[in-house]
């Protein structure tokens, strides 16, 4: 496993333990006490580090080049995966993969952003950043799922939609926008899992689900921390600092009510144990689908609408004394009036 800079103390210690072990074998000296002590220390260090990861450290784990991709998880979670291709309009964008599969025997449609495994693969897949045809392929597969009443499962893992001239010519904005609107209207369960990086509109275009789950070290934001840093401080290298300010971690999003569940990762990140990670994702998917499957198409649409309808913090001048305006987090809760209004409008809608 290649290490990240902040993991160095642990790896140094592991290296030392390894040396001692080989020394004790080679020279026949008994270091077992020393080794046990170091192993204890190593475990302690790991607990300290991985339990208290900063947003920036999580960002680096989420972008780890060995982190499992959508296809890795699809292979480990589902059976009988059959990949389907193309948007029927222009091309087959390899930055998005999708198809049919079985989850514990239940046929589902599964779709995900797909990063490459190596440089050549990454070039073919545009580093997991879709063109409009990628979003339109995803939409086509979702419409198919809706028609045949299959649940939809999506894996989110992209730095964002591809910023290119041809993407603009073919309607990048429209492709994303259409997915947002159409996903809101499907009468089948939709469960989304952010497995790595959830970058902006390109991520959200696969993310309008009844349930949105996140791996422990995954991140999700409106703009990449690098982009934010270059706008804020004209310095993209201050991404770590921006990551802290932007509240991008699974824990933050759970607090904001944007995701329903954090899926634990193996110590040190998902790439340390694909099998176990896949098992935990599968458990979560099955659990959430069991709750959603009994619901009618209308209920599923309402459930999804309510989830996104309530997101946002604002104040109305009348509710706040001038001095406090916008200053306190407490004031940021949706106001009683807003909630009342929400209920009113909800009743009036079909």
């Amino acid at each position: 496993m290649s290490e990240l800079p902040f993991e160095k103390p642990i790896n140094d210690l592991r290296q030392k333990i390894k040396e001692l072990k080989s020394l004790s074998v080679g020279k026949g000296i008994d270091f077992s006490e020393e080794i046990a002590r170091l192993e204890e220390r190593c475990k302690q260090l790991e607990d300290e580090l991985y339990n208290e990861l900063t947003a920036a450290q999580k960002m680096h784990l989420a972008r780890h080049h060995q982190r499992p991709t959508s296809l890795d998880f699809i292979g480990a979670i589902f059976t009988d995966f059959m990949e389907l291709h193309g948007d029927r309009l222009f091309a087959d964008d390899l930055a998005v993969v999708g198809g049919l599969a079985k989850l514990n025997g239940l046929p589902v449609t599964v779709i995900g952003h797909q990063r490459g495994k190596d440089t050549r693969d990454n070039i073919a897949r545009f580093f997991g950043s879709p063109h409009p045809e990628g979003f339109r392929k995803a939409l086509r597969l979702m419409q198919q799922a809706n028609k045949f009443k299959r649940p939809i499962i999506t894996f989110i893992d992209t730095k964002g939609a591809y910023p290119g001239n041809t993407a603009e010519e073919r309607g990048q904005s429209e492709a994303i926008a259409r997915n947002l609107r159409e996903m809101a209207g499907f009468g089948v369960p939709i469960v989304c899992v952010v497995i790595g990086e959830g970058g902006s509109g390109g991520a959200l275009a696969l993310g309008v689900g009844n349930r949105v789950l996140m791996l422990e070290n995954a991140i999700y934001s409106a703009i990449s921390p690098n982009g934010a840093a270059s706008i804020l401080w004209k310095d993209a290298s201050r991404a770590d600092q921006a990551a802290e300010a932007m509240k991008i971690t699974a824990k933050d999003l759970l607090e904001f009510g944007i995701i329903e569940e954090i899926i634990k990762e193996p110590k040190g990140g998902a790439h340390r144990d694909l099998e176990r990670q896949a098992e935990d994702i599968k458990d979560a998917l099955v659990r959430h689908l069991k709750e959603l499957l009994p619901m009618s198409p209308g209920q599923l649409i309402e459930d999804r609408y309510d989830k996104f309808r309530k997101v946002g913090y604002f104040a109305t001048t009348a509710d706040l004394p001038d001095a406090d305006r916008g200053a306190e987090r407490e004031d940021a809760e949706p106001t009683a009036a807003a909630r009342e209004r929400d209920q009113e409008t909800a009743q009036l809608l079909p």
Partner: peptide, 14 residues
């Protein structure tokens, strides 16, 4: 407003 802003895209579209 990072993620909260992003979700407004889904909210308005829905």
């Amino acid at each position: 407003e990072s993620i909260l802003s992003l979700m407004q895209m889904a909210k308005t579209s829905a």
